[in-house]
Design a protein around this nucleic acid. Structure first.
Lengths: 127, 127
DNA sequence: TCAATGTATCGATGACTGTCAATGGATTCT
DNA sequence: AGAATCCATTGACAGTCATCGATACATTGA
């Protein structure tokens, strides 16, 4: 799962040999670069829904500011939310392709997915 | 309503003579540019919540691709939603500072707020 | 083996929101 | 004035989601 955020026409043509999942659907031409299709809008909206929560945004920010990643144990307890809630949000961020997850013994290490932020920035900059 | 995306401390001090709404609060340093405060996260999350709907995204896209703005009457009927629903979404986009609204006789003209997209892009690009 | 610790899942609940039909207000044209 | 058109508001409803306590799973260390 590496190519989060790539446009492939109208969900079309070239078979997805390089695209592991079905979740990497038509996405994401710049907003100001032609009218958006319904399918494109669905995918983008789902991504923004992930960002539309203050706790998730702060978690993303905390991970993004930890160059070598950060232990999940350092993320529970700092945002005034229960451990299940933090775990739930980290799962959302990971499934949205924003974070990467690595299990290390008893701990889980989170890091920013390499192109996550720049891909998102591209949605707002005209081609 | 011009200063969408401006940081004003902790939502504070200066009374809102120039700010019709409470929605233009502390915002928006790049995500990867230091840990995000709770107040900042609230504002950013509200903005992303506005973007987290497929119909609103397509409306935004339609307006963004109309350099001279577009009549509201040209936005109802193209997205398979009722007129009240479209009106409701356009209000959300406007109150979020993404669109500008101008009444022209019987019609309402919508246009992209000048720096809306670039301001959003800035959230994802490191300083 | 047993205790301790980090993490995930489950079930429930309160709050929010996208949607529509119905209606009302405002403007233009005849 | 009256009809027609564009737009906003209201009220209601169904679906979604953030949250928590309780609990289960996995790993490490004694």
């Amino acid at each position: 799962m590496d190519s989060f955020f790539r446009y492939d026409g109208a969900m079309a043509e070239q078979t997805s040999l390089d695209r592991p999942g079905p979740d990497l659907a038509p996405c994401c031409a710049p907003i100001a670069d032609g009218a958006m299709s319904a399918a494109e809008a669905e995918v983008l909206a789902a991504t923004f829904a992930t960002l539309a929560d203050p706790v998730r945004l702060r978690l993303l920010s905390l991970v993004a500011n930890a160059p070598d990643g950060i232990c999940g144990c350092d993320l529970t307890g700092v945002l005034d939310r229960s451990q299940p809630t933090i775990s739930h949000h980290l799962k959302s961020l990971t499934e949205a392709g924003l974070l990467e997850r690595e299990k290390r013994g008893r701990w889980v290490w989170y890091s920013l997915r390499p192109n996550a932020l720049t891909d998102l920035a591209g949605v707002f900059s005209s081609a």
